[in-house]
């Protein structure tokens, strides 16, 4: 029943409240690199309940980032299925998956990936504008999101004028500005020094405390320790 629901249908929030935010079953994903075939995910089962903060850890090349990319619909999967808020990604068209990302998913990357041509405020309001929000509403929400990450006074600055920690906070503000069901963070502290990393970890914790579901991939022991649940991966499989 939930699989037939579309994110923009009325009453959607009420229906999905009792459903896991992420429900991935037997997910397989392989890459072709030249003549070699790399099995990045070998039948992964992965469930995230609403409000959870889950840290995915494991050695490099174990498939953490691939899992994140597949869960968020950035990458197609070869087998299995993934449901986000009860909706199957496999049955969605590319445009539907794109719209789902725009409305229900937020991203934070290790390299921040802010658009250098836009100011902090413009970067943050971008997801809302893409989703069709009015300029005024987007601006208001962006300012609120920046206030929340402690950068209320940095609205007009461009990424190049900011420190790494500030850029990552802008990236987090951008990821949550549209109140997504789910926030994915891929090594959010990977490019930061320890003090800045701590601030980012605290910020993610506070978001989670406010009810934000977070799935993060990290090598940072402190960050994984603070997550509510740790999922270990090795060789494309969830080991614990």
């Amino acid at each position: 029943m939930a699989e037939q629901l579309k994110p923009d249908q009325s009453g959607f929030e009420e229906v999905v409240r009792g459903i896991p935010v992420v429900d991935a079953r037997a997910v397989r994903k392989a890459y072709e690199t030249g003549s070699a075939r790399v099995e990045a995910l070998r039948g992964v089962d992965f469930i995230v309940a609403r409000g959870e903060m889950v840290a995915v850890i494991g050695p490099s090349g174990c498939g953490k980032t691939t899992l994140l990319n597949c869960l968020s619909g950035l990458d197609d999967i070869d087998a299995g299925d993934i449901h986000i808020d009860g909706v199957s990604l496999r049955q969605m068209s590319d445009n539907d998956r794109t719209d789902l990302r725009g409305r229900r998913i937020g991203f934070v990357f290790q390299a921040f990936n802010l658009l250098p041509i836009l100011t902090a405020e413009e970067n943050v309001e971008l997801p809302l504008l893409i989703a069709g929000a009015s300029g005024r509403r987007a601006r208001r929400a962006a300012r609120a999101a920046l206030e929340r990450v402690g950068l209320g006074d940095a609205c007009r600055r461009k990424p190049v004028e900011m420190s790494g920690g500030e850029q990552q906070r802008v990236a987090i503000a951008r990821a949550v500005v549209h109140a997504p069901s789910l926030l994915f963070a891929d090594e959010p502290t990977g490019s930061l020094d320890s003090d800045t990393s701590t601030k980012i970890i605290e910020l993610l914790e506070s978001l989670n405390a406010d009810g934000q579901t977070i799935v993060l991939v990290t090598h940072n022991a402190e960050l994984s320790r603070r997550a509510g649940r740790i999922v270990r991966m090795a060789d494309g499989r969830v080991t614990s």
Binding site: N95, T98, F107, P116, I130
Partner: peptide, 16 residues
Amino acid sequence: ARQLGMLRALGMRRSS
């Protein structure tokens, strides 16, 4: 490419 990829991740369609 990185910026374009980010825009797609943020929900921008290919046609956009």
